Simulated scan of single mutants.
Amino acid sequence: MLAIVVTPGSPGGERLGRVEEPERAGDQLLVRTLALGVCGTDREILDGRYGWAPPGRDWLVLGHESVGRVTEAPSGSGFAPGDLVVGVVRRPDPEPCMCCMQGDFDMCRNGGYRERGIKELDGYGAQLVPLEPEFAVKVDPALGLLGVLTEPTSVVAKAWEQIDRIRYQGCRPAATALITGAGPIGLLAALLGAQRGLDVHVVDRMREGTRPELARMLGASYHSGPIADVCRSAEPDVVLECTGRPEVVVEALRCLAPAAVACLLGISPRGRALNVDVGALNNELVLENHVVFGSVNGNHRHFAAAADALAAADPLCLGRMITRSVPLVDWTQALERRDTDIKTVIEFADEAQELRNREM
């Protein structure tokens, strides 16, 4: 079968190659991949800056944002052939920490976790994939290929879960949310904020085009000016920083309402210095009782919440988030960065094209 194969740590070794078809263990599902999303983590692996091959070899099957259809399922698994599913990315440490033991393996404390398509486990970028039922999540059949958005949505579902927990212990509910960045994570964060009934504001550099239109379709106000200007008219109780740009991170933390919560979701480039008055920023965070935390990855609970959020969303709006689809044979084109891109998807099968035609 065909698979997207990379050599972690060695840029330029990626290829679309033939690998042996998987042998499904008796308790596993066998899933035919329909589509694979591409994100910055995949590009870092291809650049040789990230990623680990499975023990005993130097190559890794890429891909962690997936949607596929079950072709084989064991009796009593809760799944059946024909089900549309996505695979959870992270797996608990074989010698689990306390978080891993209680199912919160996204919070693994000892670093021995593994991740499909990233760390020591082959990913979902193959025509056929074995998948343990406990790490599979059904998605609404009506979503079709849009189910490929489940993994990035799980990231923001986890962030909102953490925010909800913190705000629940506070003295007042959140009313206003600020999202920095209108990429896939930012737009999906806005979607979940709007579904919570918040007054959502999205800030991005693009002044026109698909991103402003999508933000408004999702129920958010869109802004392309300075963050400080937005915060003067709408002091945010909640901030989700989705760009990773250091200057944006600092600016966002400076405009919080009293006793606000800020979640950092973006990964920042290293080696870039800013002239920041850390003392003044620290004093503001302390004296205003702010909570600032980082979040990454998700567990089964967050994938299930993501699937529910997508099922409740406007499919036309979700469809516009996928701005480019390429066939498997041209998969490297999905790695190109274009100004108009939001989410780029690699289609694996003829059925994927049929589903996409049905959505249109």
Rank of each mutant, 00 (worst) to 15 (best):
A220N: 00
L62E: 00
L218T: 02
T7Y: 11
A190V: 07
A306V: 02
T340L: 08
S77K: 10
K119E: 01
V248T: 13
L143T: 02
G68F: 05
E115L: 02
D93R: 00
A262E: 03
L187T: 10
L355Y: 01
C317D: 04
L178P: 09
L316T: 08
D339L: 05
R205Q: 10
A352W: 00
R49D: 13
P152N: 03
E161P: 12
C108L: 07
T7F: 05
R167W: 09
V88A: 14
P55C: 05
T153H: 03
L29A: 08
D204Y: 03
C97V: 08
A259Q: 14
L188H: 09
I322R: 07
Y124T: 15
R232I: 01
G103F: 06
R15L: 04
V139G: 02
D277N: 15
P133E: 12
M1A: 13
R32G: 06
E21L: 12
W331E: 01
R57G: 14
L60M: 07
H201N: 10
R320Q: 04
P94G: 06
S77P: 04
A313P: 07
I185G: 06
T7D: 03
A175S: 12
D277H: 09
H290N: 13
E251F: 06
A234G: 03
C108W: 13
P92R: 06
V329P: 05
A312G: 02
R43N: 07
A175M: 04
C171G: 10
H302R: 12
T7R: 15
D47M: 08
A252Y: 05
S154W: 06
T176D: 01
D229T: 14
P92Q: 07
N283A: 14
N357P: 10
A228I: 12
G82D: 11
G225A: 12
S224K: 10
A306H: 12
D237L: 03
R324M: 10
I185K: 03
E23F: 13
G271S: 05
G87W: 05
N289R: 14
Y124S: 14
G123H: 03
A142F: 05
E65G: 09
A313D: 10
L218W: 08
C99P: 09
N110A: 06
D93N: 14
Q28T: 06
L36N: 01
G125F: 11
P184M: 10
